[in-house]
Each structure stands twice: as structure tokens, then as C-alpha cells.
């Protein structure tokens, strides 16, 4: 581990030199692939999940998406690379990037889709009923009631997706793409263990930083009435059958994360 520290603190590794990108450039590249994939996956899975949760139809789509989890990420990456890259001409990262992004998007869809549809679908029938009963339209129920209540689960789905994708993007260096994974595979090839360990530390820190950021977003956007984080002094034991479940329980019930 001390070697990793030496590697990480060596200024030479932090600058681009002789066509070799330095650490900041690799981190930025890693972020670009990862966040791009999460953005695409969210753009697809979030509206779909809202629709499935709100209408309570199409649960089979979620089942199929969950089936994607059984696919070996690395095998899929290699397969798509071998199939797709010959058809993408030109230089640059295209031949590496396209198959990688496809795999990353496929990995990111199940947690976002599953958590969104479960979060919206599990909103208490009494709350939905009352919201319709006092005159909200279906759209108002979705946006003003179901989404705020499902928000912890939706964000935790995005968090899972981010972790999944940041990790899988590391593996993408195997087929030749840049990013932090380069240090792991280049270090392995050169038997340079300090570089490998340094890269491992970098990617772990990056994942942790992103997850912490999203946790902060979650804390900031989720209503205390949903999260159970009441201001000191106003807390009172929740009583009665309609009292909310223990704080945090809804999250625990549908945690979708798997390491990658």
C-alpha cells in the first residue's frame, strides 16, 4: 500500500507526457464514460419506471431488465467489442467506446428501472386514493405525490447504477479504452504493483466520492416526512396504524445494489 502512496504522490504521474495522459486526464475520461452511460440509462429507465409504477402495468419489463443482471458484464463487453468494433472505422476511441457504452448503459438500466417502478408502485394505496379523491389529476398524483415519496428509492437506484458503471468502466480498459482501469491493466502487464494498487485506490475514491455526492443530493431533496429525519425537538414517536414505517425501512426493503 505504501508503494501505491508513492505512485499516487509522484508528480510525474499527474502530468500528461509523451502521449500518455496523466491521472487527472484519466479520471476525467473515466467520469465521462461513466456519467454519460448513467445519463442515457436514466433517460430511458426513469420515465419507463415512472410509467410502470404509476400504471402498475408492465412489471414483466422490470423482470426482463433484471434478467440482464445474470449476464456476465465482462463477457458481454468482449462480445460486443468483437462484434461492433470492426464496423466502426476511423481512429479515436470509437471502436472501444461504443461497445463499452452499450454495456455500461445495459448495466445501469436495471437498478434505475427497478427502484423507480418499485418506489412509485409501492406508494401506499391510501395516499394515492386520498390524492385522487381530493381532486388531483393522474399527472399531479405522479409528480406531486408519487415521485416525492419514491425519491429515496429512485436516487438509491441511480446510486447503484453509478457504482456499477464506475466499476465496469474500469474493466473496459481491458479492451483498450482509457480511464482509471488503464493503470490496473498496464500495471499488471508491467508487473508494476504500485501502479496497480494506486489505480485501485483512485477508482475506489472516485466511486466513494460520487456516492457521497449523491447521498448528499438525496438528503437534500428528500422530505423529512419521508426520510424520518425530523428536526431536533419536533420528533415524536410515530404512533397508530397509519404512522409511517421505521425511518429507512423503505430503502432497506428494496435495496438494489450489487457490487460490480
Amino acid at each position: 500500500m505504501s508503494n501505491a502512496f508513492t505512485w499516487l504522490t509522484d508528480p510525474a504521474n499527474w502530468h500528461d507526457q509523451l502521449g500518455t495522459p496523466g491521472i487527472p486526464a484519466q479520471v476525467v475520461a473515466h467520469l465521462e464514460y461513466s456519467l454519460g452511460a448513467v445519463a442515457i440509462a436514466t433517460a430511458v429507465a426513469l420515465p419507463l419506471g415512472l410509467l410502470i409504477g404509476h400504471t402498475r402495468r408492465g412489471a414483466s419489463i422490470v423482470t426482463v431488465a433484471n434478467g440482464l443482471r445474470a449476464l456476465p458484464t465482462f463477457g458481454l463487453l468482449i462480445l460486443l467489442y468483437v462484434v461492433i468494433s470492426p464496423h466502426i472505422g476511423g481512429r479515436g476511441d470509437g471502436p472501444y467506446l461504443v461497445p463499452t457504452e452499450i454495456v455500461l448503459v445495459l448495466m445501469a438500466i436495471p437498478p434505475v428501472l427497478g427502484n423507480t417502478s418499485a418506489g412509485v408502485g409501492n406508494v401506499s394505496p391510501a395516499v394515492r386514493d386520498a390524492s385522487l379523491g381530493i381532486g388531483m389529476t393522474g399527472r399531479e398524483v405522479l409528480l406531486r405525490v408519487e415521485v416525492p415519496i419514491a425519491l429515496p428509492l429512485i436516487i438509491s437506484g441511480v446510486r447503484s447504477a453509478v457504482l456499477q458503471v464506475v466499476a465496469t468502466a474500469t474493466v473496459a480498459a481491458y479492451v483498450g479504452l482509457g480511464g482509471i482501469g488503464r493503470y490496473l491493466y498496464d500495471g499488471l502487464a508491467a508487473r508494476d504493483f504500485s501502479q496497480m494498487t494506486g489505480g485501485a485506490v483512485l477508482v475506489a475514491v472516485l466511486a466513494l466520492a460520487l456516492d457521497t455526492l449523491l447521498a448528499a443530493v438525496q438528503r437534500w431533496t428528500v422530505s423529512p416526512g419521508v426520510s424520518g429525519r425530523f428536526k431536533a425537538g419536533t420528533a415524536q414517536a410515530a404512533l397508530g396504524p397509519a404512522g409511517a414505517a421505521r425511518p429507512g425501512a423503505p430503502e432497506a426493503a428494496a435495496e438494489e445494489g450489487v457490487p460490480a
Binding site: S124, A130, G133, V226
Partner: peptide
């Protein structure tokens, strides 16, 4: 409209 389990919006 009033129902058995209040149906209050938990986030408000």
C-alpha cells in the same frame, strides 16, 4: 374526502 387511514401526504 376523508378516508380510514388519513392518506396524508407523508412528504408534506
Amino acid at each position: 374526502y376523508v378516508i380510514q387511514h388519513s392518506g396524508l401526504l407523508p412528504h408534506r
